[in-house]
Simulated assay, not measured.
Amino acid sequence: MIRRRSHPAASLSARRTEAFTDGVFAIAATLLVLGLTDQSLGSPTTDEQLADALVGLAHPVFSFVISFLILCVMWMTHVRQFEWIVRIDDAGMWINNGRLLLIVLVPFTSSLDTTSNDLLLGRVLLPVNFFLAIVMGWLQWVWAVRSGAITDLSADDARRLGRASISAVILSGAAMALSPLIGSIGFLLFALDGPLTRLLRGGDAPISSPATTSRDDEASDGGVGGRG
């Protein structure tokens, strides 16, 4: 039996957008490893030579790991957002598409960070990429709140989660500002994300939901935007 849509004709169910976004994140995270496979270990003939060659991959491995972890954090933000976003219009889809455009660029800018870290552009493009992608994620929550795409969440809690999302914007902006000097090492600032998120959200007070208690617990545990 065909179910009738209960939302306005100008908007669509967010489930297909959510699934598409999941797939893009998964592909981008998988492609990151190509930056490692492109690295040459030379032709080691002893365990010592192989160990030395692997040590020489310290920066490429760091770039891969930090990029993968930040992508995971951003995906977690996407998951938490779409626990509340139930419908999406053209504007919301294009904001999401803009974020995904930046997400699929991450393997490329990560490889530049690996191969051209001695150049200014090689150091800064990955932090710039992540900063813009995180800003797009924050804008998506702002759109969702203002367009009425969220259900079962009070206006006060929606604003609190919006404030919490600024945490990742601040940290990624700081990492970008430091990147000309230290490159992707600035991403270690994300270790401060948890405390800063709680501070901006207003402590660990639970997120109240008028209809769905289980979602309250999940939101209060991490916050929608506090992870990017």
Rank of each mutant, 00 (worst) to 15 (best):
A158H: 03
I95Y: 11
D118C: 01
H78T: 06
L34A: 14
G92I: 09
Q81M: 13
D221A: 14
I207M: 13
A175K: 06
D157E: 15
G183N: 10
S147I: 02
S147A: 13
Q39H: 07
I70E: 01
E218D: 11
S67T: 10
N117M: 07
F187K: 06
E48Q: 11
E18H: 07
T30C: 12
L178H: 06
L54D: 01
L100A: 04
T17G: 10
S116Y: 15
G222V: 13
S167A: 15
S13K: 00
V24Y: 02
F190Q: 05
V79T: 11
L31T: 07
M1P: 13
D47R: 14
M74W: 03
D22N: 08
T17N: 14
F130M: 14
L120S: 04
A174C: 13
L31H: 03
P127M: 05
L102V: 09
V224G: 02
N117S: 15
L32T: 02
S13P: 03
P195Y: 02
R15D: 15
W143E: 06
S63F: 05
N117K: 12
G194V: 12
L121R: 00
G225I: 01
S67C: 07
L171M: 03
L120H: 08
I2Y: 03
L196T: 04
R15I: 08
D47W: 12
M136S: 14
T212I: 14
A211G: 00
L101K: 00
E48G: 06
E18R: 04
D157H: 00
G98F: 07
M93E: 15
A177F: 14
L105E: 00
G173C: 05
D52T: 09
G228R: 08
F20I: 11
I70S: 10
T46L: 07
L119E: 13
D216E: 15
T213V: 12
L101G: 10
F25C: 03
G194T: 11
M76D: 01
V55G: 04
R146N: 15
G148M: 01
V33E: 02
V128Q: 00
F131H: 09
S179M: 08
D152G: 00
A19H: 10
E83D: 10
L34F: 12
P60K: 05
G92Q: 08
T21Q: 02
M76K: 04
W138A: 09
A144H: 09
V65W: 01
L120I: 13
D221K: 13
D221L: 13
M136W: 12
H7F: 15
I170G: 04
F190E: 04
D90Q: 12
A10D: 15
G92F: 08
L102T: 10
R198W: 13
C72Q: 11
L153K: 06
L119R: 09
